[in-house]
Design a protein around this nucleic acid. Sequence first.
RNA 1: CGGGAAGUAGCGCAGCUUGGUAGCGCGCAGCGUUCGGGACGCUGAGGCCGCGGGUUCAAGUCCCGCCUUCCCGACCA
Length: 567
Amino acid sequence: MRMTRLALKTQREAPADAEAVSHQLLVRAGYIRRLASGVYSFLPLGLRVLSKLSRIVRDEFDAAGAQELLLPALHPVEIWQQTGRIETMSDVLMHVEAKGGAFILGPTHEEAVIATISPDLESYRDLPVTVYQIQTKFRDEARPRFGLMRTREFIMADGYSFDASPEGMKKSYKLMYQAFLNIFNRCALPYVPVEANSGAIGGDVNHEFMVPSPIGEDHFAQCPLCGYAANIEAANRGKASRSPSGEAIPQMLVHSTPGASSIKDVVELLRSEGLEIDESALIKALAYKDDKDDITLILVPGNREVRVPAGLTPLDDSDFESNSFLFKGFIGPMGMSDQGVRVLADHGILERDSWFAGANLGGHHVSNAAIERDFKVDEIGSFVVVMDGDPCPNCEGTLTLIRSAEVGHTFQLGLAYSNKIPYASFKAEDGSDQKYWMGCYGIGMSRLPAAIAEHLHDDSGLRWPKSIAPYPIEILTITPARAPEAVAFADDIYRQLEEKGVEVLYDDRDLAPGVKFADADLIGIPTIVTIGQRGLANGVVEVKDRLTGDRSEVSVPQLVDYLARLS
RNA sequence: CGGGAAGUAGCGCAGCUUGGUAGCGCGCAGCGUUCGGGACGCUGAGGCCGCGGGUUCAAGUCCCGCCUUCCCGACCA
């Protein structure tokens, strides 16, 4: 492509609303342009990057046995009502009123793929099947940000597997999981697969593919010793480093703490009375209920945040009314088992001999509350949000928190969707109707260029890996107006490479050399070929590797073959 | 949804305090000089100063309301 013909205008300065480096560079170099908040156009260069990524995804998904199809972005509301997600995902759903009914702009395609494909999956003989698409998704995000990282309209490659059994589902999952590893390797991204929560998608086993990044919106915990890695929302901590000493503990004492219903208030109040304590000396006891309204109390050290297990929700005011033994703000673990409350304690509760805790009486707390002697727990486990330095749940190591961007997510959905959709079934060998065991697999296609740009750039601009650069080669002529022989030479090289099927970006613009060099660095094509009369006089041209910065001189007769090998 | 900041030419910004002809840099068009790492001169085009109301002889500037955008948080495959 001759740059004199390319719809491209680079900018010296980034738009004021661009904060992230990837956002600034992608806009400045002419890959993307904002149309509305969280809505971006892909310009010709940007689209080429997306196409390269799509090619890699198709390669690997096809190799994993998946078949490409294309589902609509416009979904009839009925299929969303059927799974109930019209309510559970209402925050992000965008609605469209049209002739012929109400529609939802698809934020994900579980409903649509089942509605589409189930007529083809009537018998166990038809299974397993994995299908995928590369499609635009719509999510009404609370806060779009960082350019392509979080947008309201974005492109995703999403696959869905259908199996006759849990074993089959796991097999399909493994194939797609491997395809994900291959894809991210080919994108030259330093990713980490981590254990995760399934969120609104549902299902049991799932993995997120994280790229460590300063503008990531997630954190995951990683153990450098054993390799354990989990999203902070799912990460467990290991056992306490210290257990109770067994020394004699004084009797519990009741303290009057009127109005001090938060950990912070209690610490301040007790300190004002001369007690030298901090938040880690208090038990934070929070009550939750399950879907049967049974109460669960979770105990964690007062300086830690509770990680609420799935299926539990906080109590509301009416719950406190109907459970009069729970004094909001003054709950302690003592006597809870006798009230039929299940008590879960974090490992951290074993780290002290005794605790300050709520007295189960309005306006009062106790000191010297000791586990076993003064209160019982049903289960000890990991119930806190992990922090840097927590023990690893699997080994002797220590967890580190890493900020990261999620570029992919795979789920073993099991029967989560099939059970909600009557026709999501097939005839088994014994003649019975069975539900599909499903998996789903998503890659944030339009997020990938941002993640890669965030990872690979320098002060001068982007540095694409060869696999996804819009063009593998850029040819650049020096002072074309004064060097007709160099232009003729460059034209010839360009023509020969095109004939060999090599995609070339040819900067044939009549601009000052500095401008052309600067643009080449900004756009970030991995191989930059400089053709000028100075080099040609010596029978060579300069070839620069944008990734490494290495420059080499290649003799004229070898040039075309040399470049063709690089592409 | 809470907190903060900002909307003036395609992009980056000044002008607002103290109301009086709408400005600068980059980019764009023309001419000329330059030419191996973002050159220079001259000429020119380009504005509903976010929108609506108010005060005033007069509003980019003062007052009221609204909208939009960005950042932090809440939320989120």
